[in-house]
Design a protein around this nucleic acid. Structure first.
Length: 865
RNA sequence: GCCGGGGUGGCGGAAUGGCAGACGCAGAGGACUUAAAAUCCUCUGGCCCAAAAGGCCGUGCGGGUUCGAGUCCCGCCCUCGGCACCA
């Protein structure tokens, strides 16, 4: 072993060797049980950041660990390569999105390879490869055939000057990012996937994920799906011979209704105002509400409403209810119409107060009082006891709710119903850089899919992206003008591309069979590798990506391609890496780089005191990003990986610290020195019963204790930060042992054997975290084959056992003393020892203890009254 | 507003009802060195006490359960994240 540890040299050597030996490539032909370790697809932003290091380091540790535990570990990698930023860059700088993306992949791959991650690169995919997106198209057609896809008019952000659709980001602030024109909403015919058909399955499937997925992700998904059980109730509108159906979860409050309120887009609006003098005014008001809503002002809290002049009839009591239109009723939820019950709902309460509609109390307060409706200061949304509700008065609300629903069903004006917050998934994008929709619109045959043998529909190259009027693909005649596959007549190709969430729905299925040109994947390979055993990624994907991919997976199940319900068994959402920010009060300087801040915390440009911002997510605009490659150049990938994992638990946010990274590097240096001390010593025999001197016995015991604790933390909780702490402790133990050996002069043969056992355990347990240095030391210890083939160290409970343990002695729950005993000491022995203790005797003052609690090997609590 | 995390030394964090502060960072002192760096050793929650011994306090705040609470229960406060007029 060299005297000094040079990370760059070692890391280059082992990265090359792993690549040459294809060390991390796997097949499904194995005796070992499989383990699928997956990190989220990397977006091709152009540059790796510390968040990537953290995400991938977690997955890499787990892959290494499972490999050493005898699993056949698939650990693949790929690129989320389609999407808007490449197209935006192209419009701004005139680059080609494909070139932009390929360059980004090349550079980022180089960066990730310098981190020494144990990926099976032979399975690498990029979603912009025709070999990949071809199968998006194939799935699209299969979904369409199954009635899972349909087209409908749906609004998009639209720039009226350039006549192009804009993403929310491009329309931020309500103006077009290119020309500053105020954005309007335009209805376009777009593709939707019927995810709502699977709402129940997606909701109920979450039960099985409890304990395996973070609680907050499960809760967020439940809320996102938002199943709500209630009833549809039909209200007749005699004057125009129509009826309106509302959805309510509280039919038991229907006697308190004071109005029917429609969403401004509701189709009945035109019918109820037809022929009325106020029709023009109401229509204009509805239009205004539509614009307001679509301009998307989330802080809009005021209720805006207008009376249409028409009335509906409450089927329970034949009361006439005025029909209103209001901004707080949404066309996309329920039936787009509600009954307003001001005494039972916050929104209805605000609406009714503002417009002076009457109140009626229809249930007791939570504390059982009946109060004057007009005296209500807030609505009562509780389930209590009904009052003033005709024949249902005096019932528990839940009971009334059930009976009144039954009554409505009997009488034929209502029905129990379930609605969801979840809406169908719009997958159309009017953009260039995405998967082309493989459909053709024919004047005589309608919408016709491109035949399978003509897939992929290739994205044309050299397209002008800075067009006005529709999508860039609309302006490529040779792309648009096709013959109908059915009738051979002239037809028009659909020019939409797909949402990139389609790409990420099934990429991890493709990893299992990445080069298949006959089908998206061989179902037999999926049956072997899937479900994913551990998925690791950012919390920002808690809802959309992770619902869409669950949905896709269920559709594939129904197509007979896969046989499981849930594709991801365990999920870990890693925290962000954050860093302090600095800001100069001078607006010309604003955010500062750390090197622009003097040690006195003043701005190096103007000398003013710098505001130290809170620790926040790294971002370019705040100038608090750390470049991983810079850090690797200084301290090595091993140290960087170790630090990001040591900084905190994987699922919590972590704070970047330069000195923390230095600490990690210093630790690796120490491990190196400790290992070097014993690398060339010939060890004697060592077995479970070998007689050892004191310091050897102690090191051996600590070695086995630490193997046990690291193993448990790996298996049960993925508390990687505490695993690293334990490795540091083991290193400290070996160092202390070395000092003892120095004191004695010469090392005994058994000393060398015990030291070797400890160092080799340390090396093997360090491998998942800092694999390069571990490999180098392993080789120096005379092992011919790589650690990739090494086994995780086993602990021996007998050797880990303490000879004498310290037992805390409490008097009335307060720590007062300590006694020493053997591990085998019985409860009674511990009790006697504690009672004999001077402190306990003093506290007793002659009394007998009221109670003595003994926790074996830990503590004795002596209680006096 | 709703939902979900979280609040522990100077800092990052540890502790699955049983000795709070493991491990690391930062800091102080010492050894080695002509010197520095590196390395090694020691100390480092607060308060009382000249010091030691010893004692008291201490996990956001207030209650509770328990022999025993950072951990469990109830009520607050603060903070971060997600969603947001979802009937």
């Amino acid at each position: 072993m060299k005297e000094k540890y040079f990370p760059t040299e070692i890391e280059t050597k082992w990265q090359k060797r792993w690549a040459d030996e294809k060390a991390f490539e796997v097949t499904e032909y194995s005796e070992r049980p499989k383990f699928y370790c997956l990190e989220m697809l990397a977006y091709t932003s152009g540059r790796a950041h510390i968040g990537h290091v953290s995400n991938f380091a977690i997955g890499d540790v787990l892959s290494w660990y499972k490999r050493m535990r005898g699993f056949n570990v698939i650990h693949p990698f790929g690129w989320d390569a389609f999407g808007q930023p490449a197209e935006t860059a192209a419009i701004k700088d005139g680059t080609d999105p494909e070139k932009f993306t390929r360059d980004a992949i090349a550079y980022m791959k180089w960066q990730f390879q310098r981190m020494g991650l144990s990926y099976d690169w032979s399975r690498e995919i990029a979603t912009c490869d025709p070999e990949y997106y071809r199968w998006n198209q194939w799935f699209f057609i299969r979904m369409w055939e199954r009635g899972m896809l349909y087209r409908k008019l749906s609004p998009v952000n639209w720039c009226p000057k350039e006549d192009v659709s804009l993403s929310n980001e491009q329309a931020s602030g309500g103006v077009c990012w290119r020309c500053g024109t105020p954005v309007i909403q335009k209805e376009l015919m777009q593709w939707f996937a019927k995810i709502t058909d699977y709402a129940d399955q997606l909701l109920d499937g979450l039960d099985a994920l409890e304990g395996q997925w973070p609680d907050r992700v499960i809760t967020m998904q439940r809320n996102w799906i938002g199943r709500s059980r209630g009833a549809h109730v039909r209200f007749e509108i005699p004057e125009c011979n129509e009826s309106v159906t509302v959805f309510t979860t509280r039919i038991d409050t229907i006697f308190g209704a004071n109005a029917i309120v429609l969403a401004p887009e509701h189709p009945l609006v035109e019918k109820v105002i037809a022929g009325r003098s106020e029709a023009g005014e109401v229509r204009a008001f509805a239009e205004k509400l539509k614009q307001e809503q679509r301009a998307g002002r989330p802080d809009e809290l005021d209720k805006h409403a207008i009376f249409t002049g028409a009335y509906a009839v409450n089927p329970f009591n034949n009361e006439k209810l005025p029909i209103w239109i209001a901004n707080f009723v949404l066309i996309g939820y329920g039936t787009g119409a509600i009954m307003s019950v001001p005494s039972g709902d916050q929104r209805d309460f605000e609406f009714s107060r503002k417009y002076g509609l009457p109140f009626r109390q229809i249930k007791l307060t939570a504390d059982g009082r009946e109060i004057e409706a007009e005296a209500l200061e807030e609505p009562n949304e509780d389930w209590t006891i009904t009052v003033n509700t005709g024949q249902w008065s005096g019932l528990a609300s839940e009971e009334a709710n059930r009976l009144m629903t039954e009554y409505a069903e009997e009488k034929g004006f209502g029905k129990s119903a379930v609605t969801y917050r979840l809406r169908d998934w719009g997958i159309s994008r009017q953009r260039y850089w995405g998967t082309p929709v493989p459909m053709i619109h024919c004047g005589s045959c309608g919408t016709v899919p491109v035949p399978d043998d003509q897939l992929p529909v290739l994205l044309p190259k050299g397209v002008n992206l800075k067009v006005q009027g529709g999508s860039p693909l609309d302006h490529v005649p040779e792309y648009v003008n096709v013959t109908c596959p059915k009738c051979g007549g002239a037809a028009r190709r659909d020019t939409d591309t797909m949402d990139t969430f389609v790409d990420s729905n099934w990429y991890y299925f493709r990893y299992c069979d990445p080069h298949n040109d006959k089908q998206p994947f061989d179902p037999r390979k999926i049956a072997y590798w899937l479900p994913v055993d551990q998925y690791i990624g950012g919390i920002e994907h808690a809802v959309m990506h992770l619902i869409y991919t669950r949905y896709w997976s269920k559709v594939m199940r129904d197509m007979g391609l896969v046989s499981f319900d849930e594709p991801i068994s365990r999920l870990l959402t890693q925290g962000m890496v954050c860093k302090e920010t600095y800001r100069c009060p001078n607006p010309d300087h604003d955010w500062l780089f750390p090197e622009q801040v003097t040690p006195e915390k003043t701005c190096s440009l103007c000398g003013r005191a710098v505001e130290i911002g809170r620790v926040e997510k790294m971002s370019k605009s705040r100038k608090n990003v750390v470049d991983p490659i810079e850090m690797i150049d200084i301290h090595g990938a091993d140290a960087l990986r170790l630090f990001v994992l040591f900084a905190g638990p994987p699922d919590k946010d972590k704070e970047w610290s330069d000195t923390g990274l230095e600490g990690a590097a210093r630790f690796l240096q120490r491990v190196w020195r400790v290992a070097r001390r014993w690398a060339d010593q010939l060890p004697g025999d060592l077995n479970e019963t070998t007689e050892l001197n004191n310091h050897s016995r102690k090191l051996r015991r600590r070695t086995h204790q630490i193997i046990r604790s690291v193993t448990e933390n790996m298996e049960e909780r993925l508390h990687l930060n505490t695993c690293i702490s334990s490795l540091m402790e083991l290193t400290n133990e070996i160092q202390a042992f070395d000092t003892e050996v120095e004191k004695q002069g010469a090392a005994a043969e058994t000393d060398a054997a015990v030291a070797r056992e400890a160092v080799e355990a340390l090396i093997r347990m360090l491998a998942p975290f800092s694999p390069h240095i571990a490999e180098e030391m392993w080789e120096a210890y005379g092992h011919q084959s790589s650690l990739v083939c090494a086994a995780w160290p086993e602990f021996n409970d007998v050797l880990a056992r303490e000879e004498e343990i310290e037992v805390a002695v409490q008097v009335n729950g307060k720590l007062r003393s300590r006694v020493y005993a053997s591990v085998e000491a019985t409860e009674d022995e511990l009790r006697q020892k504690a009672l004999a203790d001077e402190k306990v005797k003093a506290a007793a003052a002659g009394r007998d203890p009221f109670k003595v609690i003994v926790v074996p090997q830990k503590l004795v609590n002596v209680v006096f009254k």
